[in-house]
Design a protein around this nucleic acid. Sequence first.
DNA 1: TGATCCTCGTTCGTATACGAACGATATCCC
DNA 2: GGGATATCGTTCGTATACGAACGAGGATCA
Lengths: 151, 151
Amino acid sequence: MARPGSAAETPEPADESYDLAEQVGFIMRQAAQRHVSIFNEIMGSDLTPTQWAVLARLYQDGGSSQNLLGRQTAMDAATIKGVVDRLLKRKLVQTKPDPEDGRRLIVELSPAGVDYTRELLPKAETVTKVTLAPLATNQRATLIALLKQLR
Amino acid sequence: MARPGSAAETPEPADESYDLAEQVGFIMRQAAQRHVSIFNEIMGSDLTPTQWAVLARLYQDGGSSQNLLGRQTAMDAATIKGVVDRLLKRKLVQTKPDPEDGRRLIVELSPAGVDYTRELLPKAETVTKVTLAPLATNQRATLIALLKQLR
DNA sequence: TGATCCTCGTTCGTATACGAACGATATCCC
DNA sequence: GGGATATCGTTCGTATACGAACGAGGATCA
């Protein structure tokens, strides 16, 4: 009924053109939430999307320094540290100092981490499939192409 | 070089088809991060995207119960509480019990909150504009339409 | 060599995000 | 009326996310 809430005595909305529900950021946040929900259903609640990103990246390309790993998985230095620490605690990952650079900490999959990651790969593919299920095949490529441009 | 890290003695990648960098979830997370970064640059670091979502929603449609507000802004009950608490502390929002339902807490903009929100509306529009800047006009509508289908 | 600047990893503080459990209140329906 | 069920708000615990600051190590160049 009342426009800006009963506490305000202001007429004219000033800016009728702004609708939260139509802003990319808001819609993208909702789409991301839905994706995470699908991820949790399929992958199980014992692994998060970020943790999976680290495992998948290490599986694909082998070990790397912690900071580089963070860049490759879209996490800053503070965030990647927490993720690596939790994977360390579960022994899915192991670390060692870089002999060529005293600042660096090399992170790599443990043997158990390799097995675990390989077992989850089919499920991870399913996550993407289910997330994109509402779209037609050609729309999926379009969406991904457009999202890549926003990075 | 080495595939699954030097700690593993496993040949054959088992699943060459999975590339983290090509999964919707991962790309969407990066796009969302970029958007938040743009948001912070333009809106200033004293307001978060979620806090803005609450202000914008209340400005558009007036007060509502806390849980309903959460649903409208894509936050669960636990999350919306924290957001409302922080907005309360800044006196941008005020609450009162719902006379018709003893369980409900009505949340609405304070007069200062109305002014603050109105002042920020142009900047919020800029955020969307800058976020979508890499896309052609017709691509923007396409992206939004596709994202909506994933919710 | 030594001063300067950069990178790396760590820590702290704050803010989402959400599952789970809880008590209080409403509603439904026999 | 009263019991089963559902909703609302709250709290706790855990996991991203990231800015800011810090010390240790590396690279550059005079």
